[in-house]
């Protein structure tokens, strides 16, 4: 990975100290065992329960539209800027374009992130762009580009979903024509247990294969979907890990259901914004 030499970077070979602590402490496998025995998650949630969401639009005054979302400890700010002409393009395109930038703040994760986008961030930007492209009426913005920036200030799992949901709100506030309201949810899968809206520890837990004999189920992984509410369309779908068809299908159902739970929240936030606008 290229390093940005204009900034002062941390030492090249430094390692967060927690790594050495964790080796002796709680492994993903033990954490899962605790969680499975209790039938509840460490923060007292049911397996298929979403964390409480705080959603607020108009967080950045300079931007045309913006939103701030908190899902448990995960905090994301998304801003949308005025459509502008697509730079450095000589041909005319009838459809507009989106530019998405997803960024983890350097201090947002357990490990320090660099200022430059790494591969994971680039991939998330791609997924976000894909999700929003199907929600925005691109034909209404010929030859224009809408810039969307998502900054994760604290990553405690499901940051991408949070960013997509918030971006939907920010786009509406910016007055960008949209087909529908967009919501996004993540689910983690481990041993057939579906953890809706996993935090970062649970996310980690869902990325590994347990070695001990008692866990025969190979299923593990993460699923992220984005849904357009009225049209009941999935505008984005992403899965990784190792998941069988049945689990994938049932995961999809859980996700769809959870998306519906979030929709009223998004609607409430937007209606509040609109009625405030009318009054003033």
């Amino acid at each position: 990975m290229p390093v940005d030499h204009k900034r002062i970077n941390g030492p090249e070979e430094s390692v967060p100290y927690e790594l050495f602590a964790r080796l002796s402490g709680l492994t993903s496998e033990k954490a899962f065992e605790q969680l499975y025995k209790a039938g509840k998650r460490s923060d007292g949630r049911e397996f298929e329960e979403h964390r409480k969401i705080f959603l607020k639009n108009g967080a950045v005054s300079q931007a045309k539209g913006s939103a701030y979302i908190e899902m448990g400890q995960t905090k994301v700010i998304v801003s949308v800027f005025d459509p502008r002409e697509i730079p450095n393009r000589s041909d005319y395109s009838l459809k507009g374009e989106l530019y998405c930038e997803f960024k983890f703040a350097p201090f947002s994760c357990a490990k320090r992130r660099l200022h430059q986008q790494d591969n994971e961030e680039k991939q998330y930007s791609c997924i976000m762009k894909k999700a929003l492209e199907s929600a925005v009426c691109l034909h209404e913005l010929p030859n224009f580009q809408v810039d969307i920036y998502a900054l994760v200030m604290h990553n405690d799992g499901s940051a991408l979903s949070a960013a997509i949901t918030a971006a939907g709100v920010a786009l509406v506030e910016a007055g960008v024509p949209m087909y529908d309201i967009i919501t996004s949810v993540t689910v983690g899968i481990q041993q057939g247990v579906k953890l809706v809206d996993p935090d970062s520890l649970e996310e980690q837990m869902c990325q590994v294969q347990f070695l001990s004999e008692k866990y025969q189920d190979n299923n593990h992984g993460l699923l992220i979907i984005s849904k357009l509410h009225t049209q009941e369309q999935l505008c984005q779908f992403y899965q990784n890990g190792y998941v069988s068809l049945e689990v994938l299908k049932s995961g999809l159902e859980v996700l769809s259901k959870t998306c519906e739970v979030i929709v009223p929240l998004v609607q409430k936030c937007l209606i509040k914004h609109i009625t405030n606008g009318i009054k003033s």
Partner: peptide, 14 residues
């Protein structure tokens, strides 16, 4: 704008 205007959201069937 009027107080009693009809508010709508994207994707709402009118």
């Amino acid at each position: 704008m009027k107080e009693d205007s009809l508010v709508c959201l994207p994707g709402q069937r009118l």
